[in-house]
Design a protein around this nucleic acid. Structure first.
Length: 693
DNA sequence: GGTAGTTGTCATGAA
DNA sequence: CATTCATGACAACTA
C-alpha cells in the first residue's frame, strides 16, 4: 500500500494504473486526468471536508465550471463549485461513459482540483487549443486498451449521458473561467504538462503520502456523515465492511448507484497485499466500465434470489452430493474467507460464471441457514428418498429379469465387479433359491436357515453388488458366523471371476484387487473389525439397505413402527426382515432381561437361603438357651418342693410324704396340700371339659 | 478336545 | 387377533 501511495503520488499513478488496466485487457476506458496534487492538499482537503455539502460536494466533472464537460451538464447530484477547492489533482472524470459522481471528499476534491486546474489551463497553457476543443465537447487522456491512447471529443456522448445540468449550475459556469475541453492536441500538450508537473510532484511526494493517509482517514469520517451504508463500513470490522463493499458493488450492478469513486478503487487495491498488484486480476475489478455495460445489458441485472433458488435445490444437492450435506465448493468457501477481493470480484465482473452456481461463495449463506434450519426429519426424508432409489433397485433385484450388470452400469460404481454376473449368482444360489425361494421371508426362518438365507442375501447383494458401496466388506465377514458361513460363496459372487472354484478357496485367490501384502492384511483386518462390530441383524439390514437402524426398528413404538412400514415403500423382503429384526431384537432384550431376572432370582434365593440358615442357627441358640433356663427352673421347682415338704408336718407331727401328696395353688392364692389321687382325678375332669369345649 | 458360561434365537404360553 | 413379554430349550461361540 505504501508503494501504491508512492506510486499514486508520483502523479502518473492513475495513468499507470490505466495502462495496467489496459494491458490486462480490461475494457476500461477510465478517463483519467493526471494532475499533481499541490503541497497544500491536506489543508485544502481539510477545509473541504469541513465545508457543507451544499458548497463543497459533488460537482460533476461535466460541470461548466469544472470545464470537463459541456456547459449545462452537471450531474444531478452536483451542487455548486467551491471556489476554494484545491486547484489541481487527478481526476477520474468518467468511467466508460458513466459520469463520475463524487461521493466522498476525495472524489469531490478531484473534481474541484481538475476544475481549478482547467481554469488555469484555460488561461495559460492550453489557450486557444482548448478553446477550440470546447466546442466539440470534452476530451481527456482516455486510455482504452492501449490502442486509443488519446481519444478526442469523447465528452460528447458522455456528456449526453451525464444528464442535464441544473440551470443554476449552468448559470454559474461563466463565473468561473471557462473550462475549455482540449482536443487531441490539447490532450497531448496536457500530457506534457503532466510530465512537467510530475517532476514537481516528486518533491512533494512525501508530503503527499501523509496527505493520502489523512485523506483515507478523512474519507472514513465523511462516509459516516454522508451515507448510512458507508457509515456501516466505517464502524464494522473488515469482514463486515467487505459485505458492504459487496453491496455497493451490487448497487453498481443493479445500476442504482452509477458512481464509482477513487475510494472504490482504493478499497479494491488496498484489499490486496502490498506487493500483490500483479496478482490482481484486473479484469475482475468491478470497474464501472463493466458496470455501465451492466446497465445496458440485461444479463448483469441478476436476480440473486433466483440464482440461489436455481442453484441450491436441496434435493438435488443431496442427491448430487450424497457425501456432502451442502452443495458448496469448499475451495470457494475458503477463498471467501481468505480472498475477499477475489470473491468480491466474482460478483461483479464475471456474473455469468458466478451466479449460475459454480461459485456461490457470497450467496450460499442463506442456503446454509436454510439447510441448518432443516430438521433431522427433513434430512432423513431426503435421505430416504435417496434410499428409495436403492430400494427400487432392490425390487428390481428380486425380479427375474433383473440384470445386475445394468445396475452396475447404471450407477457406474468404480468398485463394481463385473464378475458379479447372473451366471455366478445363479450358479451358486439358484438351486438353493429354487428350493426355498422365500425362506428369508418366513418368520423365524432367518436365524438358522443359513444356506437359504445366505443364498438370498447373495442374490440380493449380487443384484445390487455394483451399487453397493463396499461389496468387498461382505466378503470379509466373520467366517465363524454360521449365518454367513456362505460368505465365501458370497465372496465369489462379488469378486471372484473364477466361479468354478470351491467356496472354501483361499481368500487371496478370490480377491479381485491386487492389494499389497500389508495393506491387504490391514484392509481385511479392518473390514473384519468393522463387520464384527455389526450384529447379524445389522448386517442383514445393511445387506438389504434397510433405511433404519436396528435400534430404531427395535426401540420404535408399535404405532410408529406400523406407520413407518406403511409410510415408506418397502419390499416384502425388507418388511419381513424389519419385522424379524424387531422380533428378534425384542426377544433378545427379553431374553437378556429374563436371564438377568432369573439370575437375580437365583441370587435372591441364595441370599434367602443364607438368611434362613442364619436365622435357624439363631433360633437353635435361643432354643438351647430356653431349654437350659427351663431345666434350671425345673430344678429350682424340684428343690423348692422338697424343701416345702421337708418342712411340712401332718396332724400327728410326722413329715408329709411328697409321693402321696402334692401342692396345689388355689385362685385366692392360698396353697393346699392335696393327695395326688385327687389331683389326678381333677386333671382328668379339666381335660374332659376342655375336650367338650 | 471337553467343559462351563454367555449369548442369540426360536417356540410357546400368558397377558 | 396382533403384539409384547416371559421363559425353556437349543445352538453357537468363547475362555
Amino acid at each position: 500500500m505504501k508503494h501504491l501511495k508512492r506510486w499514486w503520488s508520483a502523479g502518473g499513478g492513475l495513468l499507470h494504473l490505466t495502462l495496467l488496466l489496459s494491458l490486462a485487457g480490461l475494457r476500461v476506458d477510465l478517463d483519467l486526468y493526471l494532475l499533481l496534487p499541490p503541497p497544500t492538499l491536506l489543508q485544502d482537503e481539510l477545509l473541504f471536508l469541513g465545508c457543507p455539502a451544499s458548497s463543497a460536494y459533488a460537482l460533476s466533472p461535466f460541470s461548466a465550471s469544472g470545464g470537463w464537460g459541456r456547459a449545462g451538464h452537471l450531474h444531478p447530484k452536483g451542487r455548486e463549485l467551491d471556489p476554494a477547492a484545491p486547484p489541481e489533482g487527478p481526476l477520474l472524470r468518467e468511467v466508460r461513459g458513466v459520469p463520475f459522481i463524487p461521493l466522498t471528499p476525495v472524489d469531490a476534491w478531484l473534481v474541484h482540483s481538475v476544475a481549478a486546474r482547467r481554469a488555469d489551463e484555460a488561461h495559460g497553457l492550453l489557450g486557444a487549443a482548448a478553446a477550440s476543443a470546447s466546442s466539440t465537447g470534452g476530451a481527456g487522456a482516455s486510455v482504452d486498451g492501449g490502442s486509443q491512447a488519446v481519444q478526442g471529443g469523447c465528452g460528447d456522448s458522455r456528456a449526453a449521458r451525464s444528464g442535464p445540468l441544473d440551470a443554476g449550475e449552468e448559470e454559474k459556469a461563466p463565473a468561473e473561467p471557462t473550462a475549455q475541453v482540449p482536443d487531441a492536441g490539447g490532450c497531448a500538450s496536457e500530457e506534457n504538462e503532466v510530465l512537467r508537473e510530475k517532476h514537481e510532484a516528486v518533491d512533494h511526494s512525501s508530503q503527499h503520502e501523509e496527505n493520502e493517509e489523512r485523506v483515507s482517514a478523512q474519507k472514513e469520517n465523511s462516509l459516516q456523515q454522508n451515507n448510512d451504508d458507508e457509515n456501516k463500513i466505517a464502524e464494522k470490522p473488515d469482514w463486515e465492511a467487505e459485505k458492504t463493499t459487496e453491496s455497493r458493488n451490487e448497487r453498481h450492478l443493479n445500476g442504482t448507484d452509477t458512481s464509482f469513486s477513487l475510494e472504490d478503487l482504493f478499497q479494491l487495491l488496498s484489499s490486496q497485499p502490498e506487493n500483490s498488484l500483479e496478482g490482481i486480476s484486473w479484469g475482475d475489478i468491478p470497474l464501472p466500465g463493466s458496470i455501465s455495460d451492466g446497465m445496458n445489458s440485461s444479463h448483469y441485472h441478476v436476480n440473486f434470489s433466483q440464482a440461489i433458488s436455481q442453484d441450491v435445490n436441496l434435493h438435488e444437492a443431496i442427491l448430487l452430493c450424497p457425501n456432502n450435506t451442502f452443495r458448496r465448493d469448499p475451495i470457494a468457501r475458503t477463498s471467501q474467507s481468505q480472498e475477499p477481493f477475489l470473491q468480491l470480484n466474482s460478483h461483479t465482473t464475471n456474473p455469468e460464471q458466478t451466479l449460475p452456481g459454480t461459485n456461490l461463495t457470497g450467496f450460499l449463506s442463506p442456503v446454509d441457514n436454510h439447510m441448518r434450519n432443516l430438521t433431522s426429519q427433513d434430512l432423513l426424508y431426503d435421505l430416504d428418498i435417496n434410499i428409495f432409489d436403492e430400494i427400487n433397485l432392490m425390487s428390481l433385484a428380486t425380479e427375474d429379469n433383473f440384470d445386475p450388470i445394468d445396475v452396475s452400469q447404471l450407477f457406474d460404481e468404480p468398485d463394481s465387479d463385473s464378475g458379479l454376473s447372473l451366471d455366478s449368482s445363479h450358479n451358486s444360489t439358484s438351486v438353493i433359491k429354487s428350493n426355498s425361494s422365500h425362506c428369508v421371508c418366513d418368520e423365524g426362518a432367518i436365524g438358522y436357515c443359513t444356506d437359504h438365507k445366505s443364498s438370498s442375501h447373495h442374490d440380493l447383494e449380487g443384484a445390487v453388488g455394483g451399487y453397493y458401496p463396499e461389496p468387498s466388506k461382505l466378503c470379509h465377514l466373520d467366517q465363524s458366523d454360521s449365518d454367513f458361513h456362505g460368505d465365501l460363496t458370497f465372496q465369489h459372487i462379488f469378486h471372484n471371476h473364477t466361479y468354478h472354484l470351491q467356496p472354501s478357496a483361499p481368500e487371496s485367490t478370490s480377491e479381485p484387487f491386487p492389494w499389497p501384502g500389508k495393506s491387504q492384511k490391514i484392509r481385511s483386518r479392518y473390514l473384519e473389525d468393522t463387520d464384527r462390530n455389526l450384529s447379524r441383524d445389522e448386517q442383514r439390514a445393511k445387506a438389504l439397505h434397510i433405511p433404519f437402524s436396528v435400534d430404531e426398528i427395535v426401540g420404535m413404538p408399535v404405532d410408529s413402527f406400523n406407520s413407518m412400514l406403511s409410510r415408506y415403500y418397502l419390499t416384502d423382503l425388507q418388511v419381513s426382515l424389519i419385522r424379524d429384526i424387531r422380533r428378534r431384537g425384542k426377544n433378545k432384550v427379553a431374553a437378556q432381561n429374563c436371564r438377568k431376572r432369573k439370575l437375580d432370582i437365583i441370587l435372591n434365593l441364595e441370599d434367602d437361603v443364607c438368611n434362613l440358615q442364619a436365622k435357624k442357627e439363631t433360633l437353635k441358640r435361643e432354643q438351647a438357651q430356653c431349654n437350659k433356663a427351663i431345666n434350671i427352673m425345673k430344678q429350682k421347682l424340684h428343690d423348692l418342693y422338697h424343701d416345702i415338704f421337708s418342712r411340712l408336718r401332718d396332724d400327728q407331727g410326722r413329715p408329709v410324704n411328697p409321693n402321696h401328696y402334692a401342692l396345689q395353688c388355689t385362685h385366692d392364692g392360698s396353697i393346699l396340700i392335696v393327695p395326688k389321687e385327687l389331683v389326678a382325678s381333677g386333671h382328668k375332669k379339666e381335660t374332659q371339659k376342655g375336650k367338650r369345649k
